[in-house]
């Protein structure tokens, strides 16, 4: 199976040099993973490298299409707090 980078990627380059399989490449509008090359880091690292450094929650999905870093898991911001703040800003 392979991981997948989606449109919330901010093109920060952090994942690309870490991939043991050279599966990650720069593309427009965002970085991509070559699903034929991605090994999920099996045999190289205990944790998938791209998903371990990616700073953006939800930007990398596992083989089942689930976010490896779900909302709140990296920033520590509880999702309901984020929603409240966004609603408050929009209402201004």
């Amino acid at each position: 199976m392979a991981l997948n980078i989606i449109e919330t990627c901010v093109n920060c380059w952090a994942c690309e040099p870490l991939c043991p399989s050279q599966a990650i490449y720069e593309a427009k509008p965002h970085f991509m993973i070559d699903n034929k090359k991605c090994t999920e880091c099996e045999g190289d690292y205990a944790d998938t490298q791209c998903a371990s450094i990616c700073p953006i929650e939800g930007a990398i999905l596992n083989g089942f299409g689930e976010a490896i870093n779900p909302p709140g898991s990296l920033t520590g911001i509880p999702p309901h707090k984020m929603m409240e703040a966004m609603a408050e800003i929009q209402a201004r």
């Binding site: 901010v10 093109n11 920060c12 380059w13 952090a14 450094i53 700073p55 953006i56 990296l74 920033t75």
Partner: peptide, 14 residues
């Protein structure tokens, strides 16, 4: 230098 290796609470990586 776009990549970072830590997260700070005063920073939004977006």
């Amino acid at each position: 230098a776009p990549a970072c290796n830590i997260q700070c609470h005063y920073c939004n990586r977006k």
